[in-house]
Design a protein around this nucleic acid. Structure first.
Lengths: 242, 242
DNA sequence: TCGATCCGTTAACGCATGTTTATTTCAAAA
DNA sequence: TTTTGAAATAAACATGCGTTAACGGATCGA
């Protein structure tokens, strides 16, 4: 099943809750369509009813909200294997926008099918709850990041978090990774302007904390970067006993 | 059952998911102890295993995290009827601190009993999931608030949110309410210093958007305050069809 | 009654970050 | 190859908020 489109999702769910063969099979048996989407596609808009649960098979996505003044805040980044709509599973109106960040392949599952599956399998309901709780934990850490850290610390923190999450999904090979975001998007995620993101990136670079080749970022001294970022991965709950 | 300590919790859960009499009874039948706690009591600390689920019967509580530099960010405020530990129901380590804000009466329920209850009743599992999802939605809105609004707007937004949430729980009588927080605590929730909170409060007051008597705040022109705050209550999911 | 303490208020000053505008780089398209 | 447009870089300047410090009022215990 390693090549099943929902494989990474099952991997992620199993990272937290023990599932038996039947439960795994029930997930793989979910009705779904695969769809390739270009970067920037809106998957759900604030105020709309969520009827489909999209799972990222490849590519990245983001959640965001826009204020009355037209300023955007990205409130979450999503990586392959993550379900984009568990956040709205028992709600009837979307409270934020979901958009692809890059070209992406999605598995589209009817929301009702997920709902029924959870009702039949308490262990799966539990795994879904855990998935939602971890996203909420990440949201809290982002609040700390945005509210209480300097621009340089915020950026370092984002880079550490992305590295950890990609690694946990087995998506890192080598020293660094591509962060497929413009500096403006990074600013929208950190509560900064693109100009100041640029200053901060260059500051980290001049300190020798990161090196860059286009959007591929490497970390010559990950320990020092973590220290600058005040990064503690506890909030990601990567180990089952967390 | 109006006077049962878990009444407000049931009221909150029923606000989103239809429960039948048996399910309501099952919640009321949860084993629990009532405990009165003074303001500032730690109920759970980051890194600790959550074994008890506390429900606020009266009084207020907050969630917070502290950075390496000793700066605090309050990431959530909790009002009566809210469960403080649903956030950790399927996790094994707390990712933030939970503390009472005021003197409070708590109903303490063994975490395992909640877990078992959810496994037996899919509708209750669904209600718990919804409760967690709404908290996550509030967290996202706080991110927007902290990341993208000015101090004055942030403060106005917090005041609007608190008013809405109290009202939804039937806890507002009259024109205003008491916000039982010091200006330093307000700053910790908004990513500001207490000095700047003071400036911002006085600014709102001079504009005629709020009036104060000690910590009781009234809103002579709630529409204008909402407009200043860019406040839209959709993210609170107060109506069942949301 | 007297301190002691916490909280709110105020002012002076500094700095991190925002704003604006221009230039350069680079990848994709033609 | 040239063109084009988006993104990154850069500099100059503006400002919202932080920092520090002082003071006053309210509350509470001794």
């Amino acid at each position: 099943m390693a090549s099943h489109p929902l494989h990474l999702l099952v991997r992620k769910l199993e990272g937290g809750v023990q599932l038996d063969a039947e439960q795994r099979q029930a997930i793989y048996a979910l009705p779904h369509m695969i769809r390739a989407t270009p970067a920037g596609t809106y998957l759900l808009r604030e105020g709309d009813p969520p009827t489909i649960c999209a799972v990222l098979v490849t590519g990245y996505a983001l959640r965001h909200k826009i204020t009355r003044h037209g300023v955007r805040q990205i409130v979450s980044l999503q990586i392959p294997g993550e379900a984009l709509d568990f956040q709205h599973l028992s709600l009837h109106t979307a409270d934020h926008n979901i958009q692809t960040l890059t070209q992406a392949d999605l598995a589209l599952v009817p929301m009702q099918a997920v709902h029924d599956l959870a009702a039949r399998h308490p262990a799966i309901a539990d795994a879904i709850l855990r998935h939602v709780q971890i996203e909420a934990s990440i949201a809290r850490e982002w609040m700390v990041n945005i509210g209480r850290r300097t621009a340089r610390e915020r950026l370092a923190h984002l880079l550490c978090e992305f590295a950890c999450r990609l690694d946990a999904q087995g998506l890192v090979n080598g020293e660094g990774y591509e962060l497929p975001m413009t500096q403006e998007q990074i600013g929208d995620a950190l509560g900064l302007t693109s100009v100041h993101v640029n200053r901060s990136i260059r500051a980290l670079e001049e300190e020798g904390l990161i090196t860059r080749a286009r959007r591929v970022i490497s970390f010559p001294d990950i320990q020092r970067l973590r220290s600058v970022a005040d990064f503690n991965d506890l909030y990601l709950h990567l180990r089952r006993q967390d």
